[in-house]
Simulated scan of single mutants.
Amino acid sequence: MEKFQDIYQRAAQRKGGEAMLQQLLVAPKTAIQLRTLPDDVWLEEFTRKVFQSGFYWSVINNKWAGFRDVFWDFSVEKLLMMPPDMLEQKASDERIVRNFKKVQTIPHNAYMIHDVATEHGSFSQFIADWPTDDIIGLWGYLKKHGARLGGNTGPYALRALGKDTFLLSRDVESYLRAHKIIDGGLQTKKSLAAAQAFFNELQQQSGLSLQELSLILAYSVGDNRVGIQTTQA
């Protein structure tokens, strides 16, 4: 397995030096910062990522003001009281992307957030307290208990709101396969555990967050693009 310093130096060289690489790195939120997030923002981001899957992200983002209007700013409390027939009406509203199956994820994920908050004080508390050395466990929780939050959807939502996580982007996957850290299916238990163990080892060597390590790894391979969105590495 490559040492962190070798990966870091290659990424720095490809990005024009260590100073340029450092400018591309973004640290995750602290646990204290995460705990201050209202639970409604998690429902909003889960919904955004569910709808972005399979669509151009710009299309969804351009309609997002409409989504917020239609779904009461993603108020978990209000959505839990919504009668089922009203959901069908909202799914046909021209202000949103009209995909009923994806719209159905909104109340489902609202119930998940509510149930977790009832047990843990808040959903944000639950997310903040989850250990990053088992971040794939949190991915698995979202996949099992949420709606359409498997694959990269849940992890991308976590990254967007600041929870420390690596991402299995194309560049990261390519590196893991080229160095025989994973083989077979990307989302198998074996592959996910191997990826987690690899990032845990890099974290021990570097003291950096999983997010920063994921970015560095992605910048060390693949197409050499500067200034790409950090949520995609």
Rank of each mutant, 00 (worst) to 15 (best):
K3W: 04
F4P: 08
Q5R: 06
D6F: 05
Y8Q: 07
Q13I: 02
K15D: 00
G17V: 02
E18P: 02
M20N: 11
L25D: 05
A27G: 04
A27R: 15
P28S: 10
K29M: 13
T30R: 04
Q33A: 05
Q33F: 11
R35C: 02
T36P: 00
P38F: 06
L43F: 03
E45K: 07
S53P: 02
S58F: 08
S58Q: 11
N62R: 09
W64K: 05
W64T: 02
A65Q: 03
G66K: 09
F67V: 12
F67D: 06
D73Y: 11
F74L: 14
K78I: 04
K78E: 12
K90Q: 13
K90E: 12
A91Y: 07
E94M: 06
V97K: 06
K101A: 14
K102E: 11
V103P: 00
I106A: 01
I106C: 03
N109D: 08
A117P: 07
H120C: 12
F123R: 08
I127Q: 00
D134H: 05
L138Q: 03
A147V: 05
R148S: 13
L149V: 10
G150I: 11
N152C: 07
P155K: 08
L158G: 00
L168M: 15
R170C: 08
R170Q: 03
S174K: 14
Y175H: 09
G184S: 12
G185A: 10
K190R: 15
S191Y: 14
S191A: 14
Q196L: 05
F199G: 02
N200L: 09
E201P: 01
E201D: 03
L202G: 15
Q203G: 06
Q204L: 13
Q204D: 12
Q205E: 15
S209G: 08
S209N: 10
S209H: 13
L210K: 03
L213K: 04
Y219D: 11
S220Q: 07
G222H: 03
G222F: 14
D223Y: 13
R225G: 07
Q229A: 15
Q232R: 06
Q232A: 13
